[in-house]
């Protein structure tokens, strides 16, 4: 550590688990969506899991630890532009939580995932497989949503690639170990990087409760027992 640097815990366990489980599931969706065939049943199950995780993360974005909350990392245009200038100049601009651009990427990814899983629920393969809500709409509508489901995956790939490139840029050029931080939860930062904000960490038990709420919501959507 350089002088003037401190170790600061920024990412709670729910955020870190959410992130890495999502990475694994996303990789599986890429594979299962391409190969299809016998993998479609698991593709759909993993889709339900991703939907539950995304719903959880949205709830956690309102009720979770400081740096997990949308209110803490969604920045205005001037902050974003100022940050972008620093990035291009490779000037140091460490942030305790998500930086202004990264924060909007989080939202973009969550919304794109929501759209992907949402359209998936209504999709059909024109042969034998259809999503659990496909029977609620006309075939024409289901076909339209299926088309969007396919094309939105390209958007997701682009966003994910941009995200990876950005993280590598930060690691390589800005000397910020963002990847390690998403494992350990701890960032090495200049002492003033937190900007006076003292992070509060929400209880992991609350996270479990919210995850259960999300899981129940997905169950109700998929099984429609009512």
């Amino acid at each position: 550590m350089k002088p003037g640097e401190i170790q600061l815990k920024v990412w709670d366990l729910p955020v870190r688990l959410f992130h890495w489980v999502l990475v694994l599931l996303f990789a599986f969706m890429f594979f299962s969506g391409k190969v299809k065939g016998d993998w479609m049943e698991w593709h759909m199950r993993a889709g339900y899991a991703i939907l539950a995780l995304v719903l959880f993360r949205i709830l956690w974005g309102f009720a979770g630890s400081t740096h997990a909350r949308f209110s803490s990392f969604l920045a205005g245009p001037s902050a974003c532009i100022a940050f972008a200038r620093k990035l291009l100049a490779r000037a140091p601009a460490p942030s305790a939580g998500h930086n202004p651009l990264g924060g909007w990427m989080v939202l973009a990814l969550l919304l794109a995932l929501l759209f992907q899983t949402g359209t998936g629920l209504f999709s059909n393969d024109d042969i034998l497989i259809e999503g659990p809500l496909a029977s609620l709409v006309t075939k024409a509508r289901s076909d339209q949503l299926t088309s969007w489901h396919y094309w939105n995956f390209n958007l997701l790939l682009f966003l994910a690639a941009a995200h990876v490139v950005a993280v590598l840029y930060h690691a390589g050029f800005m000397k910020e170990n963002l990847i390690g931080a998403m494992f350990t939860g701890v960032k090495r930062l200049p002492a003033d990087a937190a900007g006076g904000v003292v992070a509060r960490f929400a209880s992991p038990w609350l996270a479990l409760v919210l995850l259960a709420v999300a899981a129940i919501a997905v169950y109700l959507i998929v099984k429609r027992p009512f």
Binding site: K36, G37, D125, D126, I127, L128
Partner: peptide, 10 residues
């Protein structure tokens, strides 16, 4: 049969 439908579509 299902596989034949699918792979032609793909």
């Amino acid at each position: 049969v299902a596989k034949a439908c699918g792979s032609c579509h793909d």
